[in-house]
Write a protein that binds this DNA or RNA. Sequence first.
RNA 1: GCCCCCAUGGCGAAAUUGGUAGACGCGCCAGUUUUAGGAACUGGUUCCGCAAGGAUUAGAGGUUCGAGUCCUCUUGGGGGCACCA
Length: 940
Amino acid sequence: MQFKKVEKKWREAWKKEGVYRVKDAVKGKKNFYHMVMFPYPSGDLHIGHWYNFAPADVFARFKRMRGFNVLSPIGFDAFGLPAENAAIKRGIHPKTWTYKNIKTMTAQLENMGTMYDWERSVITADPEYYKWTQWMFLQLFHAGLAYRTKAKANWCPKDRTVLANEQVIDGKCDRCGTEVVQRDIDQWLLKITSYADRLLADLEGLDWPEKTKAMQRNWIGKSEGSLVAFAIEGIDQAVSKETLKFRPYLIAPVLSGEKYITHRLESKAVKVGDLVPLINWASKEQFGLARITKVVKDVMKNVSETQDGHEKFKNRKEFYATYAKYYNKVVDDDTAIWMYHFELVSPSIDVFTTRVDTIFGCTYVVVAPEHKLIEALKGQIENYKEVSVYTAKARKKLELDRMMEEKTKTGVELKGIRAINPFTGDAVPVYVADYVLGGYGTGAVMAVPAHDERDLAFAKQFKLPIKVSVAGTSTELGECMIDDGTLVDSGSFTGMNSVAARTEMTKWLKQQDSGSGTINYKLRDWLISRQRYWGSPIPLVFCEHCKTRIESGDYKKGEFTKGELANPGWIGVKEKALPVLLPPVKNYLPTEEGKSPLAHSKSFVNTSCPHCASKGVRETDTMDTFMCSSWYYLRYPDPKNAKQFADPKKLAAWLPTDMYIGGAEHSVMHLLYARFFTKVLYDLKQVKFKEPFMALRHQGTILGPDGQKMSKSKGNVIDPDDLVDRFGADAVRMYLCFMGPYDQGGPWQPGGMVGIARFLQRTEQLYDAYSKGAHTAKRSAKGNPLKKILHQTIKKVTEDIAEFRFNTAVSSLMILLNAMDDQREYIDAEVLEQFLLLLAPFAPYFAEELYRGLLGNKTSIHIVPWPKYAARLAVENEFELVIQVNGKTRDTMRVPKGTTQERAREIALASPKVHAVALGMQVKKVIFVPDRLINLVIGI
RNA sequence: GCCCCCAUGGCGAAAUUGGUAGACGCGCCAGUUUUAGGAACUGGUUCCGCAAGGAUUAGAGGUUCGAGUCCUCUUGGGGGCACCA
């Protein structure tokens, strides 16, 4: 067969006939939304793309033939670093490079024989698309889910530029080899952490690989424990203890990650004893600070909380009165919403622990180098200089270095500061050490060297005492006993087991007002700022005038959105003004201050405030490309809509997606972000479903023939175009299906393709011969023996494709072909047509050529319904009875189905092979599995 | 270090889910055919053995009438997380 010609012929015919055009509704058909993860336009389609798309297309075609109205779209994840690098290297616009690649890959995807509806394609770099990415960002921003904070970025001091993680190789800049440093830059983050619980809980109902779910769970990293406040010794206990019955503190709001609060605190130079405003009820939620809850309850008995974290007041007057009493300022409705007050009495070190049962063994406390307490207690720390040298060094450290030094623990004691264990009343030393992570829990831990390996390593190095508080298998000093056990030497809790002790001790803490039960997550907020050119601009404008008004409280209710109030001065671009277009620039490198290349464009930066029209400057960072891919599945149903991201009716017709196929490398980030987006949109009533991808399947990774990951430098890359030239697109599709289990991947077998090529060739010869009238169907007395195997094959292929077992589906097609070849005289029109139908999803061009070209059908095979198998015909009426003696197979015999145990026994005993081993023995027991086997248990 | 997964001929793999291990394909061997072939076709192909037969699913043990499949340990490979308190 002339592949090239045949493929071209049908591709054009399909296009002309609109065979793959998808309507939003077809009478009598259910919609099925089948998606593959869209590719990054890197240049050429590689074999990995084929492995993703070809079997996925087989599944989509199968579903379509099964009577579903299938939407199987494709697009391009077109923003990203490679385009920018190419642009910098060759001096062309990233857009030129990207769109050229898209053109090439589109042609390749079409050649593949896929049934994508190209009229629904999306490209994330199109302004018509990123307009809605920006719109999505604004939804999050206005809902108060975005905030700005200093976050670390990789900085190359020589190139004076921000580097993406993938541009940092072994801690060095990939361009010049200079050591990369961490630099704090103001960046935007999204509060994905406030969705941690729902992201975790909703995994339950999804038809996803267990492994992927486990990875998401692990990433979210929920752990239950207790929050314990260690009061700091030697800090003046302020008078106000009676005034307000709580011990509030500075640390909580500062830690909350609320830029606004940080700002307030800094500008007001808060001292111990000061009143400190806490901006947002969510901070309490986020950190589970039981005592803040209590405070707020005490001070504002009139405040009730709504489910989503917004507040309402039952009785405003009372609230204002309470407020005025403590803050000496009259407030109105708008300000009141925001202002809760805390009196700073005595700061404490709050630690998070999952093992509060070991607290009697706590011999010191450690805080992370980033911990705000160090700065706050500057005056009290005797060796502050030494400490600041250490923290500065630790903060500069790259993640990589932290890993390398794994075993050796470093740290410095905070001299002059001691923390009081609320259970024992003992004061223990406080250290700063980088083995405690600033971003997890409270950034401080109670160290129990007897029951925690890391604490033990540190204690040994710094010669700190080790105190056993839980008895278990190994309780020797110097050995670590991390298991649960019975508490010893633990005051009134002695004798309890760990599990009970944790509950009781947490209860006690709550009574004492120095702790509570709490839940922590490893998940961190999502940093979306990129100091890069080729991405969607963040649609915000900074306005000094609005900032002043918000901070002074001089604005009307409803004038600013929740997000604008939380980020004073940052104003969202109005929907009408979207998209904020990427400006043309000459230099694609970030600026010396670490701003994105967009900052080079004065006409872009300088603008007017969307709110008050006074002078404003635009945010110049662009968005993480994960933002673009977090919602693209919502766009395919309505890709050209200029008024909405999609018509709600069209969304309802297709979403959520029924099947999503892509690489396991996206198990965490992309899938988690997309789920987060969906949940936010659900809360904002933009969509009616809570999960975007109901079913998920991964394809495996194809390695080079040498078993190594394919890469140009290793020279082990398999070019699909070469294979297509030699064997045709159908053979490549089919071989990829046949290779092995879809989710497994593995090394490429050169030469493996030949088998499929032969199969197709033999099929063609057979059909060719038939069309020339070489065979006439005849019937034997028993009927047509091919019918049975045909119907068995229909059953098998149907079940296999549904379960993504493409390899066994192909093998059963081969078996059928072999049977047809062996019994040519029984081939009839039914066998010929149905075999082709089964083949059609795998080899769309080939099947069409035989169906239309050779068998003379007028319409496409791809609109013919999938064959149904007749159970009656697929059933065998005989089976091979396995005759075992003592569990060992000795003989087999073909017998009719339904053979009774008695009859089977007779047959077995009549077998000479059974006689040979059973001579002189007695049958003690008979195991009989109907229609399968008989096992004689014999002995003397 | 922790968590998860995997291990079957020379190779990719299959196995009705506890019931004939090795389907299907590659490769290899023999033969047929061809001007030639790195083409096509036919037959064979887990290992040992001329055979009868025996052994065999990384290794060792266990449960069972019966284990590739379930349990325990060991070894080897892959993936994820990485000081998560």
